[in-house]
Design a protein around this nucleic acid. Structure first.
Lengths: 409, 409
DNA sequence: ATATGGGGAATCCCCACAG
DNA sequence: TAATGGGGAATCCCCGTGC
């Protein structure tokens, strides 16, 4: 009954902001843009430079040496820029801006403290939290150079979350019962509390996406009266930062393409070398833009699961173009597309050629050996599209869905 | 001075066979074939079925459930066979055949006990050693069904080797000083001994190849006089078993090839999808056999490091055939070849075609857009080999050594 | 050397299929 | 309903390149 959980507020997280400091801020931002806060009378944090959206998170084991810092989204290769925030509508002396990693749920209210940590200058090695002082001299602006994101191993997440929850619970209890000794505080935590924490930690660990984070900023000032820091702004979250080394959030890229034109009738086999994709989570999109860059047509390359070779190569067939009676060739675009997050690779040029059947047929059969199929055995779209010795493609995997053109004995 | 290391024999391993049992056998085989042992008067172990040469070693963490056993080298998919040995020239009652994993140095005398363990029926969970009883009923033959090879993580090897050496040292000391108490034995091991063990373990761990093992067999019989087992044969090693899940020892395989014929003049670009290769450790070998299966010609596909895409794809150019004035096509073979161990993939058929320049030229330039190079700009070997829209290959990696045919804007 | 980036090795997890 | 085989995710290690 004297469990900290059994106080008047349903959740320990709902306690008011004005006391618990410098434990991590837990009230989530109701806004993400400075102008959303105009109705709010006090100071606020203004994100001047968003972090880059793709960045490789590093494991602790990779923390020997250094591996480059999180840059600003709009950083150029020559002119580096870094995540930057400004404390606005504030001129009451030095303040601390605290930066903590949070989870990246779409619904801001569901975001929680992330297990991942920040590394670099101004970052606390224990907590993985970064704090910098801003003042008039710096125009109340904090530039976060030298940030790294430490990828906490999945196997450690449950325990870390549990410890943090325990910590929180004890802090809360201390606030509620300032006259109690540490020993009493510890004993006030019941087995039921512990069980609850265990379960919550389990659940949170399981649902935490280790491949995205947001940076949560909040400003604090030292208050002599309470001899500690208290928040002077609501927290604000940055855009999502995705882990670059990951097939579901990493960068989509076509590294090499075996051909960049094909007949408008479709069905041409093309080979792609790509960066880490997941066979069930990638499409090859062909599309056409009008002069105003509006998409006027799109279609997808065709391939089966078995045509994706170990996340790094895709053998597919071109889709038919929207018109098949072209008299001149048409330039369109191709790109990879990832259904889960709608992300796309850079788009490459691709040329649709007039229907080859309308061009003079050339008989090359005399160059074929006996025992090989004649061109006329092939589907129309293939019949002309390559000369004898490149038309052949053999497939030794026994689960390919595509018909073979030739089979080796 | 009373260190076990300071006894008369230089190495603790050189003590005579007749005492130390059932500690693992340590004297290496002087022979590997039964007929090598004919001059040897006593019983010997005869390997009737060698183990398969490629097998996936499994980590302890993979030992939930089962993943198939080590088969015999000549096992068919329908008719499974297993590593089998026979105790020959022996008819003095039941004996134990012990199977232990050893390292696979070419020089048998350098082989050491391997850190990897055996799993399955008859295998000791602590030691990873397998022992089965043979007798007249079984014709003194042991069939090792149900064997798995447990891959010990590299980070654990040093400590394991160290513990084993310590164990050995204490066993040796006990044999030398049977009247001493365990406590005394332990104290007889000096810091110098420990240091030496540490260093040896470090060195052995570093040099141990975790991707190959041999099975070492030796037979033992229970001796009532000494109340323990003693060896009745020399040990014999099986052929090497390579870890299948490894780029330097795993199976070489061409999964898919973009074309299986090209002109004899060489230089045709071909794409391969392959299983895990290492860019600096793979060649693409073209070769020709005469009617007696003697190799009469070979040449290698040309590619740069950058043409190997993440261990799974290779874009290369065909070598010129030994004759370039063919009037009919010639069938040769292609296969992957791994320099380090001379291993090769299955060979595929490949056809060299008569020089395309001798065939009628076909002008398809009217299908090309302006701004693209004309065929005549291409090297001769490329000029004819594919029609306009498949001759294009774009390369977006900025480190490719090969000239691009077209470059996207 | 040290800072940055990146490839892939080593380890671990889990799915699909054929019983 | 466990035995088999295999792909790839998660973790970790180390190399080439440019100060």
């Amino acid at each position: 009954m004297n469990s900290p959980y059994s106080g008047e507020s349903a959740s320990p997280y709902s306690s008011d902001q004005s006391i618990g400091v410098p434990s991590p801020p837990t009230v989530v931002a109701a806004f993400n843009r400075p102008y959303d806060a105009i109705h709010h009378d006090g100071p606020y944090i203004n994100i001047l430079e968003q972090p880059q959206s793709k960045f490789r998170f590093r494991y602790k084991s990779e923390m020997v040496g250094t591996h480059g810092q999180l840059k600003a989204d709009r950083a150029e290769k020559n002119r580096a820029a870094f995540p930057t925030v400004k404390l606005s509508k504030w001129n009451s002396g030095p303040a601390v801006i605290r930066l903590t990693l949070y989870t990246a749920e779409d619904n801001i209210n569901q975001r929680k403290r992330h297990v991942h940590e920040l590394s670099g200058k101004n970052c606390n090695k224990e907590t993985g939290i970064c704090e910098v002082v801003v003042d008039e001299k710096s125009d109340y602006t904090a530039v976060f150079q030298n940030l790294g994101i430490i990828h906490i191993a999945k196997r450690d997440t449950r325990e870390i979350i549990k410890q943090r929850k325990l910590e929180e619970l004890m802090t809360l209890a201390r606030v509620r019962k300032p006259h109690h000794s540490n020993e009493e505080i510890r004993r006030s935590i019941t087995p039921t509390d512990l069980k609850k924490i265990d379960e919550e930690a389990e659940e949170e660990a399981k649902s935490m996406d280790l491949n995205k984070v947001v940076l949560r900023f909040q400003a604090f000032q030292y208050d002599k009266n309470i001899e500690s820091y208290r928040p002077i702004t609501l927290p604000v979250d940055s855009d999502v930062v995705f882990n670059l080394k990951n097939a579901t959030t990493g960068e989509l890229k076509i590294v090499r393409m075996s051909a960049c034109s094909a007949p408008c009738t479709g069905g041409t086999e093309i080979w792609l070398l790509v960066e880490k994709v997941r066979r069930n989570n990638v499409h090859i999109k062909f599309f056409e833009l009008d002069e105003n860059d509006r998409e006027v047509w799109k279609a997808y390359g065709e391939f089966a699961d078995a045509d994706v070779h170990h996340q790094y190569a895709i053998v597919f067939r071109t889709p038919r173009y929207r018109v098949t009676n072209l008299s001149t060739s048409v330039r369109v675009k191709v790109q990879l597309e990832r259904p889960t997050d709608k992300d796309t690779s850079e788009a490459l040029d691709f040329t649709y050629l007039p229907d080859s059947l309308k061009r003079p047929r050339i008989n090359l059969e005399n160059t074929l050996e006996e025992g090989k199929p004649h061109f006329s055995d092939l589907p129309p779209a293939k019949r002309f599209n390559i000369s004898s010795y490149t038309n052949e493609a053999i497939d030794l995997s026994n689960n390919s869905k595509l018909p073979l053109v030739f089979v080796n004995s």
